[in-house]
Write a protein that binds this DNA or RNA. Sequence first.
DNA 1: TGCTTAATGCAACTGAGTTGTAAATATAAT
DNA 2: ATTATATTTACAACTCAGTTGCATTAAGCA
Lengths: 126, 126
Amino acid sequence: MGIIRKTPAVEMLLAEFQKGENALSVIELIKRLSSQVNKTTIYRVLDNLEDDGLLHSFLDKNGIKWFATCKGCSEAGHADAHPHFQCEDCGKVDCLPMDIELPKIPNREIRVSQLLIQGKCEMCYN
Amino acid sequence: MGIIRKTPAVEMLLAEFQKGENALSVIELIKRLSSQVNKTTIYRVLDNLEDDGLLHSFLDKNGIKWFATCKGCSEAGHADAHPHFQCEDCGKVDCLPMDIELPKIPNREIRVSQLLIQGKCEMCYN
DNA sequence: TGCTTAATGCAACTGAGTTGTAAATATAAT
DNA sequence: ATTATATTTACAACTCAGTTGCATTAAGCA
């Protein structure tokens, strides 16, 4: 599947991810765009963009869904073993540009991993 | 806060965690106990047990809440830097008894971290 | 035994995310 | 350019995990 047609909804969503933040919650995107795009469409377009390898998704501490621009991801597979950092004060989420070392686990097959780190970001730290 | 009184609901929930599985979803607990305990009570007792350091909680891949017995946790603070492993086939979740190495992040304060690993468990691997 | 306060049940609610479907529109074929 | 067709969209209704308010019940203590 994935994106097939270049529609206004697709371009508006992609534009949001080119404004500087590398991670945005669906809730935030709905807040920003719901006057112009239906929320169902927002969910579906984001899923398509993820299938195409342009975005990857994860859940934050509260179980709400975020999408982030991919740097090392392709349609073949997401290189999303990187951690995500969420600031407890301002709520902002960043992808941390580093791989994590997964523990060795005998007799199990590891497929995906998600590391969510919480604390204070650069802005709120000082 | 935390548990103050030893009620049937508290004892029934604790009993579920002494049956062998170290992690149980709230959904599963409600399935097992809802004929005897109201689901609101289940949520509230579990929160109390977490405050008391007897359990710790986390969200799985689908954003649903799990509780697990604590081994190295106390009321003062949870030593929950250990990863959780969820089997993609059978859905079972285990706490993995190892600490993870968090990446060094300059100018940020790390408070909590959660690592969720997905794959196939010992049972489903073969 | 009775009192106080925490714990419980119940019903109604919240809100993120999903589904079904008819209408709209991007893209390819003519 | 026009048409055909398959995807995309909006809308409304729905799902379901989790929460809230409040009246009732019961644990633990004096």
